[in-house]
Every structure is written in C-alpha cells, then in structure tokens.
Write a protein that binds this DNA or RNA. Structure first.
Lengths: 181, 181
DNA sequence: TACACTCGTGAAGGTACTTCACAATGAAGA
DNA sequence: TCTTCATTGTGAAGTACCTTCACGAGTGTA
C-alpha cells in the first residue's frame, strides 16, 4: 500500500509522561480504526490489481461511472488532482481498454471520456464488490451492535469533518466541488 | 492523497437488482468507515508535509522509533517493501537531516539507520500528534457510546482479518514478520 | 579454503503526481 | 466583427515511490 494509515495501526506505547489516561483507551480505539482502514485498503487494492486496475485508475473509473461521460476537466475536479494528471491516467485507461476519448459535441477543445464495454463491466464489478464487502463486514451483527457501531462512527465522523474543516478549507466529503462565494 | 479508500466514501446507489436489503444499511456503514479512513489519512498526510515528511518516509521514521537503530534489511521487512526501496527512502531522510547511516558494529556489510536530533524530535511529535488525535476523536463520548463503537470495530476487524487471511497468506497486522513453518 | 548466502546499491523501468508553457478553441465585450 | 480573455488538453521537465535484476563486498560454515 502506501497509505499513511499504516503508520500506526497498533496502539501507542504510552509514555505516561503526564500520567493522564494511563490505560490509553483512546489510543487503542484509534489503532482499531487505523487497522480497519489499512486492511480494507489492502483488500481493495489487491482485488483491483487482479482486474488490471491501479488505485488511481480505479478511482477514476468509479467517478466516471457515477457521472457518465465527462470531460477531463470535470474528472480532475472530482478527483482533486491536476488536469495534467488526468491526461496521464486516461492515457493508461485507454491503452488498457477501459475507456475511450470521444469528441465533445459542442466544445471542440474538450473530449468526453467514455466507457468501453470492458470499462462498464469493471465499474459494475466494483459496485458489486462494494456491496459484497459491506455484507461481509456487517451481516449477521445484532441490531444493537450494528447501531452502536454506526452511532459511534457518526460521532467520530462529525468531529473529523469539523477538524479537517477547521484546519484547511472545507470540502467536506473529499469529492465535492470546490465552491466559495 | 492516493488511497483507494477514497473510491467510494458515499453510499452506493443501490441497483436493487435482486431486491434484498433495499435500505442498504450496510453500504452506508461501509461508506462511513471509508470516509473516516479518508479523512484521517488526509489529515495525517497534510500534517506530515508541514514537517517535511512524505508518507513513506514518515512510516519509516515511525518504525525506526519503535525499533531503535536498525539495518535497512530490517526496515524493508517491517515496511514490507523491497530493500532497494529502503535505500531510496533513507537517502531522502539523510538528505533532509532526519537520520544518518552509522556503521554496524559487527557486520561491515550493514548500516545502522539512526535518528539525528531532528529525527528524534519528529518521531516524538508523531507520537504526540497520535495521542492528541485520539483524544480529539473519542474524548467526551459517553462510555456506552464509546464501548459500542469499540465492540463494533472489534467485530469488523475480526472479519476483516479473517477475510484477508483467507484471500492471501496471513500476516495479520500488516507489519508482522513473515513466518511460515 | 571454498561455497553459499546476505547487505546495500547501481541500472533500468513503470506509475503517479506537480508546475509551467502553449496551441486551439470558446465566449463576451468594444 | 474584431479583440481580448478564459479554458481545454497536452508537451516538457522534474520529483517521489516502487519494482526487478545484477553485482561487489562481507559473513559464516563445512
């Protein structure tokens, strides 16, 4: 992988410098969250490699499947990378047969990135895998347990969003358009 | 970022092809988990950049802080990347003043990667940030809520570990040594 | 002493990312 | 209409990370 998440999956060795909170429940919980993130990412990445997709390309495929044929500019904004980088990713996806570049009907500068049949299949598989994966993780949990988990995640998520928003500009979900009055 | 996690943070648009589980609670929960992972990763990465560290280099610094002066071979195994890659990462960390290469006292082939003072400070800051971050996410939650979250994460983590182990060799926590009888 | 193995690195190559420069095009005002 | 300004995508150049292969230097052992 690559993700920084991997950096500290296992609990901190507690320096207990100032002695507060010596059992470190919070650190352990953070460790859990990080490990979940690592494992999910690992699983996804390896699965994608089997289908001939790298992470950035898969991300692009996913966005494309949600938006339909798009200009590279739109994709760049969606993935929050430079337009130049999209050119390279599309080059790769074209070379491996997932998408094609079609002329934009009303703007001759732009191209419409469009799925091939293989691309459509890949996107559908990603969606199916997502469902299956959610099932694997949560199916069969008691309602109480599941609800407790979701409620906890809600709190964490809210705090996380607030923290990120406070530290840098907003863009809450990480794939929103940047809009500022 | 980079992480594939980013691919599908928001819930799936339910094709309800076979109609089962039409409300998609599981998909939504997975979306939550993914978004948490994305935001944490984003936050960490940006914080590191401020300290002059990239993700892979920070990961190495973290491992080094947990193991003390180590050979590059050991670090390669710990990070699960090729020894050659470690050479490059260490080159970068040496150039930016975080570590030095000291001669190994008993093996003249090997070098002991060792923190400079700056490196020690960086590792300490990472540890402090980790604690602070856990505090930010979990402090002030009711015990019931916190316990519910942790219990849910436990279940998810167990399933995840099992799934990963089933799909590929084991190596549970992602930074274990590879050991096979 | 000879053989096999280990440590770190040069060489070569791939992907993902960035910024800067630029030609083609589009859009809107004088 | 003609000029001006903004936008689209890409070439060029450069960085970081990662891999495999080859190899010289050093270790350990029979």
């Amino acid at each position: 992988m690559k993700s920084l998440l991997e950096v500290r999956a296992k609990g901190m060795p507690m320096t207990d410098r100032d002695g507060q909170d010596a059992d470190d429940r919070f650190g352990a919980a953070l460790g859990q969250v990080l490990e979940v993130a690592i494992l999910i990412n690992e699983d996804m990445t390896k699965g994608l490699a089997r289908d001939g997709l790298t992470e950035p390309r898969a991300h692009l495929v996913w966005e494309l499947s949600q938006r339909g044929p798009s200009t590279q500019r739109v994709l760049a904004d969606a993935l929050r990378v430079s337009p130049r980088n999209i050119t390279g990713l599309i080059d790769g996806l074209v070379a491996t047969g997932f998408v094609t570049r079609e002329p934009h009907p009303s703007d001759r500068r732009a191209t419409l990135v469009t799925f091939t049949e293989q691309g459509t299949r890949a996107a559908a598989k990603m969606a199916a895998d997502h469902r299956e994966f959610a099932e694997l993780l949560f199916a069969g949990m008691s309602d109480a347990q599941f609800d407790g988990l979701v409620a906890g995640l809600d709190v964490v998520l809210a705090r996380l969003r607030a923290a990120v928003a406070a530290a840098w500009g907003d863009s809450t979900t990480s794939d929103e358009e940047v809009e500022r009055p």
